[in-house]
């Protein structure tokens, strides 16, 4: 596919100041840094060599040396020696990233360096330091969760396994796990650890507040990250949570009607990995699920807001309402309160 001229111009204009500050960079490295192929970079360099200021004599042209692909340098950049100004999104991405790092650090020296750099970039880009258009906030973590995070970060940095005691949603007691941690992710108010279960050689997601104990284990070699089958490589935490019920005997794949739309949409977003389709019809979402553990689905739907109907599945609808009624009876709710919710 032909690359857009605009993208090539942007890359070419950015290549010159980069090479000016990194003389001797190879074409291969430039390709990696600029997210392009070595062939595209070579084409850019040939083209830049033809460009220059009006007059276009050898004194006015951009002067580059690129015959040796392992050593590229700019001899005369004309007026292109300074980096191009950053776009708004580029400024926001760096400033918010530095903000987040500053919030994660406890070391005063690092904190002040991060904030100084953040302010320098914001000011040079004419962005407001005091009233930025966007900011990042860290949720408050408990002391034990902070310790868990620091151990996970250490394990990732040092390629070590972690030994956990972990409480799965449907289990009665914590179970021991040996895992190879991959990354931390935040979603819906919880922090999740994406990792490989070393016993199963399968990718799993663990909620941090359900880890009851954690310790560093052995050093891991790269084989630890090889999964048993290709089908378990999904990183969807909802998929893993759907599997993580302890009871995998019966699977169902119903069409659900969830009302109102907002609740239906939230359910679909939270469980993207098992949602095959989501159609808005009136004030409801019609959600077709992929095969999933029946027990997990019942528990999950019961515990979320909203009205739920199993379309064309009388058996599941009856079973679902039976569980709901049984739970309802456990409390002294006045019977007149019973009815459809908001």
């Amino acid at each position: 596919m032909t690359e857009l001229a605009r993208n090539r111009v942007a890359r070419a204009l950015d290549l010159i100041p980069f090479i000016v500050s990194h003389p001797g960079t190879s074409v291969a490295d430039l390709a990696q840094i600029f997210n392009a192929t070595p062939k595209e970079i070579a084409k850019d360099l040939t083209l830049l060599h033809m460009c220059g200021l009006p007059g276009y004599t050898h004194l006015e042209l951009l002067d580059l040396s690129y015959e040796n692909p392992d050593f590229v340098e700019v001899i005369n950049p004309q007026v292109l020696d300074k980096p191009r100004s950053l776009s708004r999104n580029e400024v926001v991405s760096l400033v918010l990233g530095l903000d987040l790092l500053a919030k994660l650090t406890v070391e005063p020296k690092i904190l002040s360096e991060l904030l100084e750099l953040r302010n320098r970039i914001a000011k040079a880009s004419s962005s407001s330091v005091e009233m930025p258009i966007a900011r990042v906030e860290l949720p408050s973590a408990s002391e034990s969760e902070s310790l868990t995070v620091s151990l996970i970060v250490q394990a990732i940095a040092e390629s070590k396994e972690l030994r956990l005691q972990y409480i799965s949603g449907g289990t009665s007691a914590p179970a021991g796990k040996r895992i190879a941690p991959i990354s931390l992710e935040q979603s819906r108010g919880h922090t999740y650890l994406d990792a490989i279960d070393l016993e199963l050689s399968q990718r799993r997601t663990y909620r941090l507040d359900r880890i009851t104990s954690i310790a560093l284990g052995e050093h891991l070699d790269s084989d630890a990250f090889i999964l048993k089958t290709s089908t378990v490589s999904s990183t969807s935490s909802s998929n893993d949570r759907a599997r993580d019920t302890g009871n995998r005997t019966e699977e169902v794949s119903p069409l659900l009607r969830i009302t109102p739309v907002r609740i239906g949409r939230l359910f679909a977003e939270d469980h993207q990995g098992i949602v095959e389709s989501n159609t808005i019809k009136g004030d409801s979402c019609l959600i077709q699920l992929a095969p999933v553990s029946k027990e997990w689905l019942m528990r999950t739907l019961l515990s979320r807001d909203g009205l739920v109907e199993f379309m064309n599945e009388t058996r599941l609808q009856t079973e679902f309402e039976t569980i709901a009624r049984a739970l309802f009876r456990r409390y002294d709710f006045p019977t007149e309160q019973i009815g459809r919710g908001e």
Binding site: D14, P17, F18, E90, V91, S93, G97, L98, L101
Partner: peptide, 25 residues
């Protein structure tokens, strides 16, 4: 590190572009 934190389309791509613009290898 700041640019590596992003995992989304909009700011993830912008962060990588910002680094190359600022001549950061």
């Amino acid at each position: 590190l700041a640019s590596g934190l992003w995992r989304d389309q909009i700011f993830g791509t912008s962060a990588i572009r910002a680094l190359s613009k600022l001549s950061v290898d």
